[in-house]
Write a protein that binds this DNA or RNA. Sequence first.
DNA 1: GTAGCATGGTAAG
DNA 2: TTACCCTGCTACG
Length: 284
Amino acid sequence: MPEGHTLHRLADEITDVFGGALVASGSPQGRFAESAARIDGARLIDADAWGKQLFVRFEGDRFVHVHLGLYGTFDIRRDVAEVPLPVGQVRWRLVRTDGASGTASYGDLRGPTACALVTDTERQAVVARIGPDPLRADADPDRAWARISRSSVAIGALVMDQSVLAGVGNVYRAEVLFRHRIHPLRPGRSLRVSQWRSIWDDLVVLMREGVRTGRIDTVRPEHTPEAMGRSPRVDDHGGEVYVYRRAGMACHVCGAGVRTEVLNARNSFWCPRCQPVFRSRAAR
DNA sequence: GTAGCATGGTAAG
DNA sequence: TTACCCTGCTACG
């Protein structure tokens, strides 16, 4: 379930569970064995995320760079009496043993796109090539606007381009454009700066909520299942959404059939009535 | 049981 | 543009 909120939530959890402790590090699967051994027994300082990039910091300015990709997972179990044998392909296992209580906490990383031991210089290079992240307090939305306002590329492609904006994935893309009534195929430069500001501010709120709850919920109070008397959505990410993966179904706001088209090699979703390609004369 | 797809991104062709 | 990484869920038979 990895859009930016998942990685920030994971960084917080890793810091909470393993921060400041000496940890055992290994690669049951073997593909990360040599690097994992180099930090085995070292002190884990903390973890931090920039967009979908996660960095776990160890003493000596060493970092494990993790990118979950489409289906990677990092499952953490706290305070277990016994650490179980690894199930499936575990690329990286992290274990903290609490001598006083006799329990242990552990984390298993499976199916990541990236898992590598890097230097601080390498970490900074990764951070330097991604756009501002709505989940970081120091992020500068003007950096993204500089790209968007000069681009003829579709806004739906731009908001998912991690070098423009970091952390937004296919769900937040569809939902934030719906909430601002913007058709995903509109060129970036056709947006007004005020629209971009609204999108950014909204992403800050939506994604923070995502970090807090671990789900992507984007429907406004008046459009919740309870408010509308409709049945709740059942999906693997668990949140309530307007258009994401609702192709052919009725828009919660206007009833029109939700449309879909491949954009950036990903399925894009929008409501043809709520998100017109061009603003009507009357609306201007 | 299992085919097909997916919240992502890179690298090869 | 396609293959891949090789997880996990859903839909279908």
